[in-house]
Simulated assay, not measured.
Amino acid sequence: MKQQVFTRAADTSAMVATVAMSSLPALAMESTTFAGDSPETEPVVSVRVDDSDPKDGVCTGTAIAEHWVITARHCTDMARKPGGSVRTGQGDSQAVYQVDRVEVAPRGDIALMHTVEPMRLSHFAEVAAEAPSGEVNIYGWSSDGSGGSTQLPSAKGKVEGESELSLYDAPVAAKVTLADGARIQPGDSGGAIFADGKVAGIMSAGLFEDPDNPTEEEMQSNSAVAVAPVADQAEWIRSVAGEQEPESTAAGGNAPSAGAASGGSTEWLRYAALGLGVLALLAAGFWALRRH
């Protein structure tokens, strides 16, 4: 994992707009450890949210059913239209499945992607009914990560309580710190936090150790991440993945308001962003606030 960031609007509003609109490469986890093959890691996939995205992917997701992958909403909000694909497996045992639609959660940085064909996996991840706590496992995909596009990097983490950065009207976000020097960067967005073998949260945005004084290293990567717990949306996730009628707005619908994404302020600019999607979304919110 590793990760890219940007700073406060008061100092860098022009830079925010430039970064959000530029075609920067998506990056991924830098770690000295790799996932290997296990029931927990098999469902972790690389995500393309748009057909024009690089083949190596721009975000991370987790397969929770034959046709469904859970990822971050801010990733899917960047798609020009429903499409993209997910890549399963590692090494020479990889397969690509096209995506035909996306459903976004009623609240929180959570989305589900639907594949046209069933994913041929022997194991699908279970969604946790409780918020993550204690020790967790973290995974992130991208060609720029330490594993390239063939080995899935992994890291240990610990839930350190709540984070101030909760997107899309989420009631709460969790703060997770990575162990053993591992760091996150764009491309890890949407990756799951696994607790007791279940998907307990979705990586949403990286965090500065001191939001008012980010270090030079933190301008490129971060050792802590804000996580959207899935327990708040577990019932919705299970209803959608069970092919019942979803209650959310499908991708391509109305974008969330600036207040929904940023909590009605520019406080989010004091933190890192894990993916280009959240950069563009939050930059748009900043300019909307500036106009008022």
Rank of each mutant, 00 (worst) to 15 (best):
residue 45 V to P: 08
residue 42 E to Y: 06
residue 54 P to V: 01
residue 45 V to T: 07
residue 19 V to Y: 10
residue 22 S to V: 09
residue 55 K to N: 08
residue 26 A to G: 11
residue 43 P to R: 04
residue 48 R to L: 09
residue 53 D to S: 11
residue 40 E to Y: 05
residue 34 F to L: 10
residue 57 G to S: 09
residue 57 G to Y: 04
residue 34 F to N: 02
residue 42 E to L: 10
residue 34 F to Y: 07
residue 27 L to S: 04
residue 37 D to I: 03
residue 57 G to K: 06
residue 51 D to S: 07
residue 51 D to F: 03
residue 33 T to S: 14
residue 12 T to N: 14
residue 16 V to H: 12
residue 36 G to K: 00
residue 23 S to H: 14
residue 43 P to Q: 04
residue 49 V to L: 09
residue 15 M to V: 15
residue 38 S to P: 10
residue 28 A to Q: 00
residue 29 M to V: 05
residue 17 A to K: 05
residue 34 F to D: 00
residue 12 T to G: 12
residue 32 T to P: 06
residue 8 R to V: 05
residue 59 C to S: 06
residue 21 M to D: 15
residue 52 S to A: 15
residue 30 E to T: 06
residue 23 S to G: 14
residue 52 S to D: 15
residue 43 P to M: 02
residue 53 D to G: 07
residue 46 S to M: 00
residue 27 L to R: 01
residue 42 E to I: 06
residue 56 D to C: 05
residue 39 P to Y: 04
residue 49 V to Y: 09
residue 60 T to P: 01
residue 33 T to D: 14
residue 18 T to E: 09
residue 11 D to Q: 14
residue 58 V to C: 08
residue 33 T to N: 11
residue 11 D to C: 13
residue 25 P to E: 04
residue 52 S to Y: 14
residue 47 V to C: 01
residue 22 S to R: 09
residue 25 P to M: 07
residue 39 P to M: 06
residue 37 D to K: 06
residue 25 P to V: 06
residue 37 D to E: 09
residue 40 E to R: 06
residue 32 T to E: 13
residue 60 T to F: 00
residue 15 M to Y: 15
residue 58 V to E: 05
residue 8 R to H: 08
residue 58 V to N: 03
residue 27 L to F: 05
residue 16 V to W: 13
residue 27 L to Q: 03
residue 41 T to N: 03
residue 47 V to M: 02
residue 25 P to T: 07
residue 9 A to F: 11
residue 57 G to N: 05
residue 20 A to F: 08
residue 58 V to Q: 05
residue 45 V to S: 03
residue 24 L to E: 13
residue 37 D to G: 04
residue 29 M to T: 03
residue 60 T to L: 01
residue 51 D to N: 12
residue 57 G to T: 07
residue 21 M to Q: 15
residue 58 V to Y: 04
residue 26 A to E: 12
residue 35 A to S: 07
residue 8 R to T: 08
residue 39 P to L: 03
residue 42 E to D: 14
residue 56 D to A: 12
residue 27 L to I: 08
residue 47 V to S: 00
residue 38 S to D: 08
residue 57 G to M: 07
residue 13 S to I: 14
residue 6 F to S: 12
residue 31 S to V: 02
residue 47 V to A: 00
residue 32 T to H: 13
residue 12 T to V: 14
